[in-house]
């Protein structure tokens, strides 16, 4: 048991940062992401003996997290989806508004990412945050590599368009 616990401890410390960030962008809520990550690791602990290839641990955890998110999302009302239409900064579950300190370019991009439809946001997260290839993303999402590539292309295009629109709004003083 001691070695299993030590293995699990090391797994948590090596992967929790990326897993949290993936969960954060999936839920678009820091509090929900925190809970989601904890549930994920709890399930991972119970199934740790099933993990044969430690090199695939992160991908294994991402799969568990996505399933947990689906389970949690089924219980929660889809109010978060309405955030895509909101102009104001992204609020957290408790209602506290996490406004960026200033309207930096990163803050604009942060908002644009949060507003991406999940079908574009998720492949982008898997690629950029988790380092998945298109083939790996397709396998995870039950899609095809070509469709994934299209979604990634469109995700980036949408973000660039959103940033250009924000920049234009700033230039014309409409914000």
């Amino acid at each position: 048991m001691a070695s299993k616990q030590a293995q699990f401890d090391a797994l948590v410390r090596a992967t929790s940062g990326d897993l949290y960030r993936f969960g954060y962008w999936l839920c678009r809520s820091a509090a929900l992401a925190d809970d989601l990550v904890q549930e994920t690791y709890l399930r991972a602990w119970r199934s740790l003996d099933d993990l044969r290839d430690t090199a695939a641990a992160k991908a294994w955890l991402v799969t568990i997290l996505r399933r947990e998110h689906a389970r949690l999302f089924e219980r929660k009302t889809p109010a978060l989806e309405s955030l895509e239409d909101r102009e104001s900064p992204l609020p957290d579950d408790d209602g506290a508004v996490r406004a960026p300190d200033d309207e930096s370019e990163d803050a604009l991009l942060h908002r644009a990412i949060a507003r991406l439809d999940r079908k574009y946001r998720e492949p982008l997260l898997l690629q950029v945050l988790c380092g998945y290839t298109c083939e790996e993303i397709a396998a995870e999402l039950g899609s095809t590599p070509q469709a994934v590539m299209t979604q990634l292309f469109r995700a980036r295009q949408k973000l660039k368009v959103a940033l250009a629109g924000d920049a234009a709004g700033d230039a014309h003083g409409t914000r």
Partner: peptide, 10 residues
């Protein structure tokens, strides 16, 4: 920029 924006604090 994208990587930077996605790297929210843990």
């Amino acid at each position: 920029r994208l990587k930077r924006a996605l790297a929210v604090p843990v």
